[in-house]
Simulated scan of single mutants.
Amino acid sequence: METDQTTADQVYSTDDPIVEIRDAAVTYDDGESYVLDHVSIDLDRGEILGVVGESGSGKSMLASSLLDAVPSPGRLMGKITYRPDGDEPVDVLDLEKDELRSLRWEEISMVFQGAMNSFNPTMPIRTHFEETLKAHDADVPEGIDRAEELLEDLHLEPERILDSYPHELSGGMQQRALIALSLVLEPDVLVMDEPTAALDLLMQRSILMLLSDLQEKYNLTMVFITHDLPLVAALADRMAIMYAFRLIEIGETRDIVENAAHPYTRALLNSTPNLNAPLSEMRPIEGQSPAPINMPSGCAYHPRCPLASEECRTDVPDYHDVAPDHGSACYHWRESYDEVPLVYEDSLGGTAGGESR
């Protein structure tokens, strides 16, 4: 199909956004470099969005930006709008401290990396739930009832978990207890930053299936941050690929898995071990992603890209329509199908590869 260049807002807009991110940028040095570089994307109400990229690509900074929780002295710019169902839109970056405190956990909640670092080791799990409920002036007995239901949804024994200290639980149990804690105030949006990174592959898959069930039961909107593209492909409705603090490709999950158009996305698919491909077929991505203070000119991926041309070295590419609701920021996306072939059977069924369009 013939494609046109388009803007990020056109590529990423949705019919019923619950969160709109426009030109979000984070700097620690007054704009000389960025750890989130002018990202625009909508989060559709009720969807699961997978945000994928290597370590240091800006994924966690994007997650923190959704809650205006960028660590000091970082400065977050742009516009982030939360649209609760039936209420007026909320400008997240214009909230007072008390308003922002209410937004976090009550409207938009987050599961951070490493459950073992999220719990106070001197307090039983029950106390974590009680203190969270009290901090938000919620009814504690009612909240504990809800916590017990959530723990059961996550295939845990509520009384055992609530009366245990964190160190008495396995890593998988801690992670599921943390997910229950993040949902106890009934938020609309759940942001998960590498929630399964410290777990073995089978436990990762198990938690993903449980998250899918939770999303359906509680009508949640989820953002799942990960470096593991094949893992999140089993869960997400759409995927957004980040490289060097920018979004470089976004589309429906099946279209990304089967017809990834950016050379980096295709290389990422080839480099990630998964249950459907032998290790012998995995291909590491040569080179390293750039640091914020040493960004190359033009397309940030060009020093590692086999398709890089002079245009790539000098000009930042616009987004191109690859398919409906699938955009790629690459001048040579058509050639990528032949030049960067996919070498594995995808986790959604069928053979990945893509074809020239």
Rank of each mutant, 00 (worst) to 15 (best):
D228I: 10
L229S: 07
L229K: 11
L229Y: 10
P230N: 03
P230M: 10
V232Y: 08
V232M: 06
V232S: 07
A234T: 15
L235F: 11
A236F: 08
D237F: 13
D237K: 05
M239W: 01
M239F: 03
M239G: 00
I241P: 01
Y243T: 04
Y243F: 14
A244Y: 03
R246Q: 14
L247P: 00
I250S: 14
G251D: 06
E252S: 02
R254M: 08
R254P: 02
V257A: 11
N259W: 10
A261N: 11
A261H: 04
H262E: 01
P263C: 04
P263D: 00
T265C: 08
L268M: 07
N270F: 01
S271G: 09
T272Y: 00
P273Q: 03
P273A: 02
N274R: 08
L275T: 13
N276E: 13
N276R: 15
A277Y: 00
P278L: 11
L279C: 01
L279W: 11
E281L: 12
R283I: 15
R283K: 13
R283T: 14
R283F: 00
I285L: 06
I285G: 02
I285Q: 02
E286L: 09
E286Y: 13
Q288G: 00
P290I: 09
P290C: 04
P290R: 06
A291C: 07
P292H: 04
P292F: 09
M295Y: 08
P296S: 01
S297E: 15
G298R: 01
C299I: 09
Y301L: 14
H302Y: 14
H302D: 00
P303I: 08
P303R: 04
P303C: 07
R304N: 07
C305F: 07
C305W: 05
C305I: 09
C305K: 01
P306N: 04
P306R: 05
A308Q: 08
A308Y: 12
A308F: 07
A308R: 08
S309L: 10
E310V: 11
C312K: 06
C312N: 04
R313K: 14
T314H: 12
D315T: 15
D315A: 08
P317Y: 08
P317A: 03
D318S: 10
D318L: 10
H320G: 01
D321V: 15
D321E: 14
D321T: 15
D321S: 10
V322A: 02
P324I: 11
D325Y: 12
H326A: 05
S328T: 15
S328P: 04
A329M: 05
A329R: 13
Y331W: 14
H332R: 14
H332M: 08
R334C: 00
S336Q: 02
S336K: 03
Y337C: 01
Y337P: 00
D338T: 15
V340H: 09
P341R: 06
P341D: 06
L342F: 06
Y344M: 14
Y344G: 07
E345W: 05
